[in-house]
Design a protein around this nucleic acid. Structure first.
Lengths: 174, 174
DNA sequence: CTAGCTGCAAAGAATTTGCTAAGTA
DNA sequence: TACTTAGCAAATTCTTTGCAGCTAG
């Protein structure tokens, strides 16, 4: 799931890593092998990933980092703004690279859980206006559109849909 | 937390309950004392509440419903569109009445966790346009603006802020 | 050296589920 | 009566934490 192709560039990665070092130094935290490994993997990955997935990916590379450390490390990387965490209302937090990326929002397919990104400047501006109109300060915002991506109708890409519905039905509740 | 004043009206509540009955009948589910009790409490409550809170509220009224049943019941009420569930990224699902209410989005204060509602037609329309432009079907959407409501500066209403920060600091990562 | 880190196993919080008695249509 | 529920407790899932030894600065 985490891929080796680098949509980011060797140099960009290097610069992000030194950003991380600056961040760590500023709070007397340490640059460890694990943090470096995780940062590299997280930044090179394109798309969203969970703690569990990052953990598995590192395990496969023979660069194993314990799951607890992955959770702690992701918190650090998020604080350092190298990654961004999202809550897509399915009980599992998802992350994505936050450096060298423009801001965007998400659509999540309720069938197959695919995540589609989009940007809309007008919406951004309107959000800011709403917050200001109340006299508040915007710290963050999260816009997620839950959609049916309809892909399954064409080529079965939403195959997980069937699974999930079967599971749900079997579990009772109608 | 759940209050007895009814911002909803006796008759509106009755009509919502029969809506629920129709929903249940349509899927051969049963109208039980617990479901009726929960529906009443949930609908009469104004503002957001958690499963835990609803459970406690019913317990206090001497109308005890087990926590498991509250969870299952909220799922039914949500399916029946009597309540709406939200995920404000703090690990606990929150609900609110969904009948006789216009759609709205939320601002959540990152300091005191206060929830402020707002509506913005323009944003709604733009969201719909985005989804359509991709050929998807909108099933739901969730827009949450995380803000600093600044109230604490004036009157201390955001006092929980201090608590939370202390806890966070004590928990390490700091 | 020494504060901070890691791995491990255990703890936690929120939510879900299996099972059996009980209730509804 | 037949099928859906409720309550309870155990199980799950994701995430956090305590602790003892390890490591970077």
């Amino acid at each position: 799931m985490l891929q080796d192709d680098d949509p980011f560039g060797e140099d960009a990665l290097e610069s992000a890593l030194s950003e991380l070092e600056v961040f760590l130094r500023a709070r007397r935290l340490k640059m460890t092998e694990q943090r470096r490994t995780m940062a590299k993997a997280a930044l090179s990955h394109h798309g969203h990933f969970t703690a569990e997935e990052l953990h598995r990916a590192l395990g496969n590379d023979g660069e194993a980092v314990s799951l607890a450390t992955v959770y702690r490390g992701l918190a650090v990387l998020e604080d350092a703004a190298l990654v961004e965490g999202h809550d897509f209302a399915d009980g599992t937090r998802r992350y994505e690279r936050a450096v060298d990326r423009q801001h965007h929002d998400h659509m999540v397919c309720v069938d197959c859980r695919a995540v589609i990104e989009f940007t809309n400047e007008k919406i951004e501006r309107l959000q800011q206006q709403v917050v200001e109109a109340h006299g508040f300060t915007m710290k963050d915002h999260s816009l997620t559109l839950f959609v049916r991506c309809n892909v399954w109708r064409a080529d079965g890409a939403c195959e997980r849909r069937a699974e999930r519905e079967a599971r749900r039905k079997a579990a009772g509740l109608g």
